[in-house]
Nucleic acid binder design. Structure first.
Lengths: 242, 242
DNA sequence: ACCTGAACACCGTTCAAGT
DNA sequence: ACCTGAACACCGTTCAAGT
């Protein structure tokens, strides 16, 4: 017996896994699903891995790095929309993105604050760029647009995912009531539009915002790009000053 | 002697102020300017007020409430743009908004996550609504649009305000390098557009995003509103803003 | 009503020391 | 190189007890 045939047979416990970045993040995902992101702390994770918190710093730089890795893992569950116009597919993909973030309270906040660079995040960027450029959007504009689209989707998720429904509804109602009870002389628009400010469902506002962005991107050139001269051959610029 | 004439003359210290919500938030602002938002904790604030943390809970509900109040106070320093088209004024106002958030690292994150309802925040809403509806934007659309505009400005500030420049630049460079070194077969767009993804300055991207939104809002009806019949008189359609 | 000391239940991160 | 115990330096919030 070399003692290697059944590496987990020695203990009754769920088999203390050998430490590795993959194992750390996998356990972090378990913790995420079981208790939510705010419980995915270095200390709790260490406890779950049957070790001390200091041991984790071999595999993750810090808590932000850990949460970014968890976020990237979760983005691996995104599906690929295959129907509708390219705009519809962008909207569907980002709606799915918010659904994923929505499922794990707290994760949307992480996405707002960290710039992930894991494989699933880069896959998402690639898919968005492909849809936009495939739809005829100027590539330089598309590169900036994905940031805008993702930020809007993330912000919507953060707004609607965090906290329980009740607290969130109370928040909105507080704003509506605050707006509605202001002096109409000093705040005519706000008092008149108090209900509109907080109207609509999350998906409705997400959808509208994404379509606003897609429409706007198609019509707004990037400020730092050369404008195409209106009547020259598209091959090359004659005598550029460089 | 009522003992009220000089309430602060009894002590040499900076005059332990009588506790009140205003005093708590004023001291919190001092702490914000001196040490940044992540040092505006209940415990440090209590120490600065020469009391224990428990005493603060009479005046603020919790830390989120405290930070929201600090944010609102800071928004009191916004200026009023008076030149340019209504679109230019919206951009100028929100650029100023990001400048204010940018000045106080950490505050942008608070703005991303909390929905303030203080007087300066409602003033900002009123001014944005006035500019949009004054520019001919449908009021219902304007109400939704301010959310979009503020979220974009806040996200831009959060991205560029947090952390020191060096770390932030490293972050972007990491993304650029990650994108550039992916397999061009699986990620053709991302590898080709790696530089574009992270190009541009903060103000450039903020400006572009805001103009994208303004353009898109003008062209995208809200999904839950009745469509205007297409054959009405175009009396107010061109809406020249000057 | 306002204020407090003290406690409860946690955090992230570092570091010298082990293997 | 990897792992650890222990420490350092903090947190937010509650609550019984005072005034």
């Amino acid at each position: 017996m070399t003692g290697r045939a059944h590496p987990t047979s020695r203990r009754e416990r769920p088999a203390k896994p050998a430490l590795s970045r993959a194992a750390v993040i996998s356990t972090a995902l378990d913790l995420l699903h079981a208790e939510g992101l705010d419980r995915v702390t270095m200390r709790r994770l260490a406890t779950a891995l049957d070790t001390g918190p200091a041991s984790l710093y071999v595999y993750v730089r810090n808590t932000a790095d850990l949460h970014a890795a968890v976020l990237d893992a979760v983005l691996g569950t995104l599906t690929t929309p295959t129907t509708g116009t390219w705009q519809d597919r962008v909207v569907a993909l980002l709606t799915d993105y918010t659904r994923v973030l929505f499922t794990h309270p707290g994760l949307a906040k992480t996405a707002l604050v960290t710039r992930p660079d894991g494989p699933h995040y880069t896959d998402l960027l690639e898919r968005l760029l492909a849809l936009l450029t495939g739809g005829g959007v100027d590539p330089g504009r598309a590169a900036w647009a994905v940031d805008l689209l993702l930020a809007h989707a993330t912000a919507t998720a953060a707004e609607h995912a965090d906290r329980d429904r009740a607290e969130q509804a109370a928040d909105l109602d507080r704003l509506r009531r605050t707006a509605a009870t202001l002096d109409p002389t000093t705040h005519p628009h706000l008092t008149a539009l108090a209900d509109d400010l907080v109207s609509g469902t999350g998906p409705q506002r997400l959808d509208w915002g994404l379509r606003v962005l897609l429409t706007g991107v198609a019509a707004t050139p990037r400020p730092d790009q050369h404008q195409e001269p209106p009547c020259t051959s598209p091959s090359s610029e004659p005598g550029s000053a460089g």
